[in-house]
């Protein structure tokens, strides 16, 4: 009964909104807001397997490549900076500045260096994503509990094990927060870099539809982008919940203890 109620309340509003959109738009003669029925037909017609392979797969691959490279660089540098107080003091304002630059303005800069190919798009994503990961890692490493560090030292947990068994796990909730921010930046940059200059990709396709006034197809592209954003964040959340299950438990215990 409880489960049914939960499912019901989760599904009710989306169904209502969907039905509302469907019914209200059905008679729509507006050029910009075609009936949902038409958009759905366009969706099925447009996003066929070969189209997915030609436009969606390259986008996703660039996104993943950029995100992973940014994660490696960000966590690596973040640990180095976080462990070294002097380095941190010197670099913090510089890093804050880079983080504050709206990532999409990097597109024209990186186009200068890397042209308009796949390399450019991956570099744009790396450059935009790396700052939140780096700064959050620095913060996480800096905040490792002093008793944890003392314990590790007293029991001879030094060298690589200190890093992999103590510092990284301890900083991981903060690192995950950085990765989460970076993921949404990565999606934005994936789309933007393709809108700027590309011959394939989701962002490119959607802009093409808009420029050729293929409105239902454009809408279907927007919906696909939305679904993609939702799916990626869902995957990330599941991975995070699995990797940080100890942290969730710890927090829940602390909250109960008040």
């Amino acid at each position: 009964m409880d489960v049914l109620k939960k499912i019901g309340s989760a599904v009710a509003l989306p169904v209502l909104l969907f039905a509302g959109w469907f019914l209200l738009s059905d008679g729509s003669a507006s050029f910009y807001a075609p009936p949902l029925r038409q958009i759905l037909t366009a969706f099925a017609d447009t996003w066929q397997p070969e189209r997915l392979r030609a436009d969606v797969a390259p986008s996703l691959l660039r996104l993943l490549a950029g995100f992973l490279v940014a994660a490696l660089i960000g966590v690596g540098l973040g640990v180095a900076v976080g462990l070294n107080r002097r380095l941190r003091a010197v670099l913090e304002p510089v890093l804050e500045f880079f983080r504050a630059i709206p990532p999409p303005v990097l597109v024209p800069v990186i186009m200068l260096f890397a042209g308009i190919g796949d390399g450019m798009k991956v570099i744009v994503i790396v450059f935009g994503c790396v700052w939140p990961i780096l700064l959050n890692t620095v913060e996480g490493v800096r905040a490792v509990d002093s008793v944890v560090l003392d314990t590790a030292r007293a029991y001879g947990v030094t060298g690589p094990a200190r890093l992999t068994r103590v510092i990284l796990p301890s900083a991981s909730p903060q690192i995950a927060a950085g990765l989460r921010q970076a993921l949404s930046i990565a999606i934005i940059l994936m789309v933007i870099s393709e809108m700027f200059a590309s011959s394939n990709g989701l962002g490119f396709a959607v802009v093409q539809f808009q420029r050729s006034f293929a409105i239902p197809e454009m809408w279907s592209g927007i919906i696909l982008l939305g679904l993609l954003g939702f799916a990626l964040s869902l995957v990330f959340r599941l991975a995070e919940r699995w990797a940080l299950r100890w942290y969730e438990g710890l927090r829940a215990t602390r909250r109960r203890a008040g």
Binding site: S9, A10, V11, A12, L13, P14, L17, Y32, S184, I187, I188, V191, I192, M195, G203, V206, V207, F209, Q210, I215, M218, W219, G221, I222, L225, G226, G229, F230, L232, S233, L234
Partner: peptide, 23 residues
Amino acid sequence: LTASTVEFLRPIPSVALIPLAVL
């Protein structure tokens, strides 16, 4: 009632709306 809808709409990248905004 709104939890699932918020969770769905929130991660939609706003740049997906660019074509719509242009139109």
